[in-house]
Amino acid sequence: MPEPQYTIEPLDPKVHDRSSFRNEEKALESYIQTQARKDAKARASTCFVLTSKSAPEKILGYCTLSNASIDAASIPEELKKQLKLPSYSSIPASLLGRIARDTSAKGTPVGKLLMASLFKRAIRTADEIGSIGIILDPKNDRLVEYYSSYGFKKLSSRQMLLPMDEALGFLTRHYQS
Rank of each mutant, 00 (worst) to 15 (best):
C63P: 14
L113V: 02
T108V: 04
V15E: 11
S74T: 15
F21K: 00
C47L: 05
A105K: 02
E3Y: 11
T46C: 14
S148V: 01
A116E: 08
E25I: 13
S74Q: 14
M115T: 00
D165Q: 15
G111D: 05
A93Q: 00
S94H: 09
E145P: 15
S157A: 11
I123M: 02
S131A: 13
A55N: 15
L143S: 08
Q33I: 15
E57T: 05
F170Q: 00
R37P: 11
S131V: 09
L171M: 05
E145I: 15
F21E: 00
A100E: 00
I70F: 01
L155S: 02
T46R: 12
A42P: 15
L85W: 09
T125P: 15
R37N: 07
P13F: 07
L143V: 08
Y62N: 00
T64Y: 02
I91L: 03
N140D: 07
L155P: 04
L96K: 08
K58A: 08
T125S: 14
S156W: 09
K106G: 07
I99V: 07
G107N: 01
L171C: 06
L83M: 12
K154Y: 01
K41G: 11
G133E: 03
I123G: 03
T51V: 11
M164A: 05
Y88A: 13
Y6K: 09
G111T: 03
D137C: 07
L143A: 13
E57D: 06
R22C: 12
I59L: 05
K53N: 04
K81Q: 07
R173I: 06
S117H: 15
E24M: 11
I59R: 02
Y88I: 13
E145L: 15
I91M: 04
E57A: 06
P86L: 00
L28D: 00
I123A: 01
F21C: 06
I32E: 00
T108H: 06
Y146K: 10
A73S: 14
K41H: 15
A68S: 14
R98F: 04
K58P: 08
I135R: 03
F48Y: 05
A27P: 15
K154H: 00
G169A: 08
E29V: 14
T64V: 04
Q35F: 14
K26G: 14
R101I: 10
D165N: 15
K139W: 12
K80S: 06
L60H: 02
Q35G: 09
G111L: 05
L171T: 03
E78T: 13
L161D: 00
L143N: 10
R43H: 05
S87K: 13
P10Y: 02
P76L: 01
N67G: 08
T34Y: 12
E78W: 12
K154V: 01
F21L: 08
S177L: 12
K80L: 06
L65N: 02
S19M: 08
L96H: 07
